[in-house]
């Protein structure tokens, strides 16, 4: 049976005491230390049955000084879905990996590591995935500066 956002949050709060949200319709903020426990509860509680991790990504918030790691999860059995977010400070972004709960997170976490520099603790194989292995910096950070200049384009007249 599909649950609405406040009901899902209430079920999750039963597993994680003290969890609240100002607006349940927006992604719920989970403390970084509790994300693995939250993931397990979301996946294994039969009322939630969030077996699929649809998407995992991050949003850089330089003004607030943190990076948000966003999880979009859903249940194919119940036809409901939710979004979670974990806030982690810029510069030393570390979040526990959820690959053990949702194997789908494997490449998503590698991508966030590659493009945002977020370290996922406990990930079995955290390497760059899209950029070359020797790339410098993390391109999706808002303050990312290109280290290599553009290759000049020769005009026909110069050739």
């Amino acid at each position: 049976m599909p649950l609405d956002a406040p009901a899902m949050l209430a079920v999750l709060a039963g597993h994680l005491p003290g969890l609240t949200a100002e607006d349940p319709a927006k992604p719920w903020v989970i403390p970084a230390g509790q994300i693995t426990a939250a993931a397990l509860a979301l996946r294994d509680d039969p009322r939630l049955a969030m077996t699929s991790l649809m998407n995992l990504t991050a949003v850089d918030r330089p003004d607030a000084g943190h990076i948000e790691v966003v999880y979009h999860i859903g249940s194919m059995a119940h036809h409901h879905r939710a979004a979670l977010r974990v806030l982690t400070p810029r510069g030393q972004a570390r979040v526990p990996s959820v690959t053990a709960v949702w194997p789908a997170a494997d490449w998503f976490e590698r991508e966030v590591f590659d493009l945002f520099g977020v370290v996922f603790e406990g990930h079995p194989d955290l390497r760059r995935i899209l950029c070359p292995a020797d790339w410098e910096g993390h391109p999706l950070l808002k303050d990312y500066v290109k280290t290599k200049p553009d290759v000049p384009i020769k005009k026909v007249a110069d050739a």
Binding site: L115, L130, C131, Y144
Partner: peptide, 11 residues
């Protein structure tokens, strides 16, 4: 190994 066509659409 992937990423050979990476253009960073998102950026």
């Amino acid at each position: 190994h992937i990423g050979y066509l990476h253009r960073n659409h998102e950026k």
